[in-house]
Nucleic acid binder design. Structure first.
Lengths: 331, 331
DNA sequence: CTGTTAGCGCATTCAA
DNA sequence: TTGAATGCGCTAACAG
């Protein structure tokens, strides 16, 4: 392990001069600089980032803490990465598996200290646990749960999106619309907010809200969505629309409908939420609510950068507007 | 920033005693331990991981360096994460955007030192650049490019997979099969290996290999695959099968075929490669080559763990076997 | 322009 | 069982 001291010895200078050459801090005489660079090259020296971090108190690294690496969060992360890099920092992803303890661990003082800033996509933690997090580290929360006021937070217009999608299917003739992936539970989560929008669309259209049409999906997994729709079909409950709380859930519905011989959108209209890239390509094209990944990423990173720059104003709670993108799965 | 020294002062003991309590290293008397724990609690002390890393020379962290966070790599990462965590370490993801310079930077001595081990999915680096990487850090390469012998490496049976998929479509009656996402280039990459399998299936069936049926796809993106297939249709080149080099590419083909009014599999059979979760759910179900994510992850992590445990034997080059998973997109 | 001193927070080594 | 000294590798502040 070659250190600065080795380089200094090789170049016949002091350690500080090596440091100054590497960091362009204080001016260094040209011949000295050349000797140092030659020594660095000869020894293959590279800085020890851990030591630099300890000394500097900064890591020039931002963490994005996600429930899982794939699907939605992977797409968002790919949007966030270039924005972080544009500011000269690194982005790393950590995974919590949507487990509250792991999310809490990621927000521990110890782990936070490894980063200059953290973006957390909260999936498992409730407001009280979050409120107990004590740190001055710049943090921005991203996600659909309620969070304590003092955190910067970016969420989507969940209820409005669900209302848009559902109203669109009602306008196009659907009358019995399943809320796939929604929940009977109370509280404020992605699933409750989107159920509320589904309900509101019904009320605004003067239609009854039938609780039997709320069909939960374990873990919002495509496979479970698929199975749930087949179960509904088998149960005989009549339906002519599916409002899926996410595109991944919608894909499961589309597959199940195809297997059951039901045509989309002629027999059953389907809408999703997230507007994943694949929504364009899964036949007949998935009508979806566009959450504007790029805008969400930009808003989130802006808030974080502001905090990292020392901004101490009150926390912001941004609700990202959404829009309906109509494709072949609705009429 | 509360440090061990603060805790020591509060508890009226030395810094070393605090360290011993925290790390369970040397035995500490029960009353002393209680005082220390009380002080830790009172002050809200948490260890400074950066300092620990510098002192210990280990970080208990493994990095998985990927071209991008979404799709295939996100799915693989989700498989790798629990295996790393089972060994008591953290996994973090870093992204290179498939750019050679960024991959090289990720393999620099400086960045490597932040981790106890690194898994790299090489996309942009050629063999020579990799050969120049000088480090004793445990590294396992994951991916379809050729790599220098001295690196542990896990790759898929690309040619065999492509041969299986193509031969399957030939056996089911296809005679003009597009190699979508393949390349005319030479060298050894994912695209050339899979093209070779496509060619071999033709030769083994006594069919001509027509170079016009090699259709590259920019960045293996679904959108570009979609556009490329529409271009082929517009060109009038007749075809009755599509061997897509990845599932993402295959999804683009399926969408394009649907738009053009061609039926899958009746008019055109389609196969993919990767067997993504969604291959089950994109109607009519995508026949694909199963790369065994879980097995690939297990193999890769095994190699890495062995290196991290100090194994210094010769590098292993594992070719992960593949199998054909038949679904509705082929007859 | 270059070198010396000091210390970031922790844990290994040795002494008490 | 506990404490003191020491240094991991680097850089801020100051001295020369």
């Amino acid at each position: 392990m070659v250190t600065m001291a080795d380089v200094a010895r090789e170049a016949g200078v002091s350690v500080m001069t090596v440091s100054n050459v590497i960091n362009d801090r204080l001016p260094v005489g040209e011949p000295t600089r050349a000797r140092v660079l030659a020594a660095i090259d000869a020894l293959g020296y590279e800085v020890n980032l851990t030591a630099r971090h300890l000394r500097a108190g900064r890591t020039e690294t931002v963490a994005f803490v996600v429930p899982g690496f794939h699907d939605y969060f992977g797409e968002v992360a790919d949007q966030i990465a270039p924005l972080i890099e544009a500011a000269g920092r690194h982005l790393v992803l950590e995974r919590t598996n949507a487990v509250a303890e792991q999310e809490l661990a990621a927000l521990s003082v110890a782990r936070l200290r490894l980063y200059d800033g953290v973006i957390v996509s909260v999936a498992g933690l409730d407001t009280e646990s979050l409120a107990a997090v004590r740190t001055a580290k710049p943090i921005v929360l991203l996600g659909e749960r309620d969070v304590p006021d003092r955190f910067d937070h970016v969420r989507l217009a969940n209820e409005e999106g669900a209302r848009l999608a559902t109203a669109h299917m009602i306008a196009r003739g659907s009358r019995r619309i399943i809320a796939l992936g929604a929940t009977h539970e109370v509280g404020r989560t992605m699933a409750t907010d989107r159920r509320a929008g589904w309900e509101r669309a019904h009320r605004e259209a003067g239609l009854d809200v039938d609780q039997r049409y709320i069909v939960p999906v374990t873990g919002y997994a495509t496979r479970h969505a698929h199975d749930a729709v087949l179960d509904v079909i088998a149960s005989g409950l009549p339906f002519d629309g599916v409002f899926a709380v996410s595109d991944a859930v919608a894909f499961g519905a589309i597959a199940a409908l195809a297997e059951a011989g039901l045509r989309v959108p002629d027999d059953v209209q389907v809408t999703g939420f997230d507007n994943l890239d694949l929504a364009n390509f899964v036949p007949p094209g998935l009508t979806s609510i566009d959450a504007g990944h790029a805008e969400v990423a930009a808003t989130t990173v802006d808030l974080l950068h502001r905090r990292m720059a020392g901004w101490t104003g009150p926390a912001e709670h941004v609700v990202q507007p959404v829009r309906l993108v109509v494709r072949g799965s609705t009429r």
